[in-house]
Simulated assay, not measured.
Amino acid sequence: MTVSETAVPPVVNIADALGRFTEQWAQRRIGGVNDYDVKVAKVQGEFVWHTHDDTDELLLVISGRLTVRFRAGDVELAPGEFVVVPRGVEHCTAAEEETSILLLEPTGVVNTGNAGGPMTKAARALESS
């Protein structure tokens, strides 16, 4: 038997998941698709310029507004909008107000990519309520 024959997959409420933590720039895993993590985060201020040399990164705004800065120009995202940052493209995210985002990227991707530094945080599983 496969898992799909013995269990019903969980339903994840994104708003509920975001309500269960307050730390900014700290990604929480809320699910997975094949070898990818589905993560949420709360962000405010400016992140570090970085690249992910081996993978694309999807950034979807749930609430607030997110600026994704590229050397070629900025992309402004409103709730319900997303951008895919291509692998190897240097970028920096920023938000004037607290903004909630959903990320889709391969398991194990480091949030600061090649930059490292004090904002590097491993994604953690969302704790049960």
Rank of each mutant, 00 (worst) to 15 (best):
T67V: 03
E97I: 13
V33W: 11
R28H: 03
V12P: 00
G64L: 02
S100W: 00
T93I: 09
R87C: 00
A17C: 02
V33M: 02
C92E: 03
F82G: 10
G108E: 15
T107D: 12
E57A: 12
N13M: 06
D53V: 00
T112P: 09
L58N: 04
S129M: 06
P79D: 09
Q27P: 00
L126V: 10
A123M: 07
G31T: 13
K39C: 08
F82A: 00
G80E: 09
G116W: 15
S63T: 13
P10L: 04
G32T: 15
H91R: 13
A41M: 03
R28C: 07
T6L: 15
E105H: 01
G64N: 04
S4L: 07
F82D: 04
L104I: 15
F21Q: 03
S129L: 13
L66N: 02
G45D: 07
H91M: 10
S63L: 07
E5N: 14
A17F: 13
V11I: 02
V110K: 15
T67D: 13
V33L: 13
V8W: 14
A94S: 11
H52F: 08
E96H: 14
E98Y: 07
G116M: 13
K121P: 05
V68A: 05
A78N: 14
T107G: 03
V83A: 04
A7Y: 12
N114A: 01
A41D: 08
L126P: 01
